[in-house]
Write a protein that binds this DNA or RNA. Structure first.
Lengths: 234, 234
DNA sequence: CGATCGCTTGATTCCGATCAACAGGAGTGG
DNA sequence: CCACTCCTGTTGATCGGAATCAAGCGATCG
C-alpha cells in the first residue's frame, strides 16, 4: 500500500528551470534524432521526490524526456495494490501515448528534471517528417519489448530470478563507479517485481551472504558474481 | 511445461489458400485503413493446430492479420516455463516489429487462416502514407496498453481476479451466441495468466459452484454474474 | 475397443505474503 | 547538542494461496 498519493499535478504552474543539472551518465548524447528534437523544443521542469507528473486517465498533453533523477510509471488496483511498469532514467522518454489520455500514473522517485514538449507539437513534427514518425514508433516498440520481458518475469520467475533480472537490468542502466546506484526504494522495487518489500530485502540479503552481491549501503549494490545472476536470469 | 515444440516453420513453403474461411465474428469489416490495406496486399495462409508461424529471434519478414482461428504469442525460459503475451483472434494484427527480429514465438492454437504481407511492403507503404504510419504506431501502442494491463494482472492479482479478468476480456472478444467460445486449452490460459492448469481449472469450478458462470462444456463458458466478475476485475 | 489427451479433483507441500519487532538514519525542535 | 519522531530497511515467526504430486474421468481417435 503506497501511502503517498497527494501531490499537486499542475504542469503549467511548475517553475521552469533554466539550467538542468547534468545527468550522471552519457545519456545526454542523443540516442535518436527525435530525442534531440525534444531537447531543442522543450522546456525543463523540476519535480521533487514523490511528486506526480501526471495521473492515469488524464489527457496526454505532454511528452517527457528525463534529464536527471528517476520517474516511475504505474497502475493501481482499487484497493491500492500497485504495479510499476517502468523506471524512467535519464535519457528515457515517457508519456508518449497513441490515445488521448495517459495509460498510467507517472511520479518522480527522486528530485528529477525532465524536458517537456507539447504532444501536439511532437505529432505535428512526426506528420511532417517520416523519420521522426518512425522514431516515435520505434520508441513505443521498445517500451513494448520491455513490457513483454517483464510479463515473463512476473508470470513465471521465482523471487530470486526476479531480483537477479532486476540487478542485471539496473547494472546496464544505472552503474556508477562499478556499483549500481539505486534511485528507488525497496517498495518501488517490490512493486516493479511483483513481490513484497520483505521478500526483496530477504533475497538481497541472501545474495549478499552468498557473496553474489555486496551491499555497501542499501541504495548501492555491487555485483560480485555476474555469471550466477545471468544464469538465474535464464 | 509445454511439450509440443517441434513443428516446421516454413512460411514460404506453405500452401496459399484461395478462399479463407469466413471469420465467425464481425472482424472482417476493417477497423483501420491499414488493416484493410493488409487484406488487399496479402496472401492467405493456413496453419494447423500447434504449428509455428514464426520463432523468437527469427528475422521479422512478414506481418500477419488473423482471419480465422487463433494464434498465441509467447516467450520461453530456458527450462520450458512459458508466458503467453497475447492471444490473437480474427481481426488482430501481429508480427509487426520495429526491430529486425521477432520478439517472441507465434503458434496456431487451432487451425487458423492468416493474411501475410511482407514487412518491407508495409514499411514502404507507411513511408509513403503518413496515415498508415500512424495506424501502425497506434497498433503497437494498443499492444503496449494490453501488455501493461497484463503486467498489473500478473504482478498483483489473485488467481480468482486473474480468471475473472480473463473471462471479461474473452467475453468482449470471443462471444458467440451468448457464451464465450474458448479457442485455447487450459494450459494456454494458465500460461497467459501466470498460473498452473490446476489452479485455472479449480477456479473455474469454484465460479461454477458459485453460479458466477456456467460451463456447458470445457471450451464454452457463460457469464451468469457479470457484476461480480467486474468487481473482481477491480 | 484400448489408448491418448485434456480436464477435473483431491492431498500435500512450499514459496512468498503477512504479521510483528527492531535497528539505523534523517530531519526536527527544544 | 541531544532527544524525539518518522521513515526505511532488515530480520524473525507464522500463515496461506497456489504449486506440486497424484489419481481418475470423459471424450476423441486410431
Amino acid at each position: 500500500m503506497p501511502s503517498e498519493r497527494t501531490m499537486q499535478t499542475s504542469v503549467a504552474a511548475k517553475p521552469i528551470v533554466a539550467s538542468a543539472p547534468r545527468p550522471p551518465r552519457a545519456a545526454v548524447t542523443g540516442r535518436s534524432a527525435w530525442a534531440d528534437a525534444l531537447r531543442m523544443m522543450g522546456a525543463t521542469i523540476a519535480y521533487s521526490r514523490n511528486e506526480e507528473v501526471y495521473g492515469e486517465d488524464e489527457p496526454a498533453e505532454f511528452v517527457y524526456l528525463v534529464t536527471s533523477g528517476a520517474i516511475r510509471t504505474y497502475k493501481l488496483l482499487s484497493d491500492g495494490r500497485r504495479q510499476i511498469a517502468a523506471f524512467r532514467l535519464p535519457g528515457d522518454i515517457f508519456g508518449l501515448e497513441a490515445g488521448e489520455t495517459h495509460a498510467f500514473t507517472a511520479e518522480a522517485i527522486a528530485d528529477s528534471s525532465v524536458i517537456v514538449v507539447r504532444r501536439s507539437a511532437v505529432l505535428a513534427h512526426a506528420a511532417r517528417d517520416g523519420a521522426v514518425a518512425r522514431d516515435m514508433w520505434a520508441e513505443t516498440a521498445r517500451d513494448l519489448g520491455r513490457a513483454q520481458d517483464l510479463l515473463l518475469l512476473l508470470g513465471r520467475k521465482s523471487a530470486q530470478e526476479r531480483v537477479a533480472t532486476f540487478l542485471l537490468e539496473m547494472a546496464d542502466r544505472a552503474t556508477y563507479g562499478g556499483a549500481i546506484e539505486l534511485p528507488m526504494s525497496r517498495q518501488d522495487i517490490a512493486d516493479y517485481l511483483g513481490l513484497t518489500i520483505e521478500t526483496v530485502s530477504r533475497t538481497l540479503s541472501q545474495m549478499e551472504h552468498a557473496a553474489t552481491i555486496a551491499l555497501p549501503s542499501c541504495r548501492r549494490i555491487e555485483l560480485r558474481n555476474r555469471p550466477l545472476l545471468s544464469r538465474l536470469n535464464s
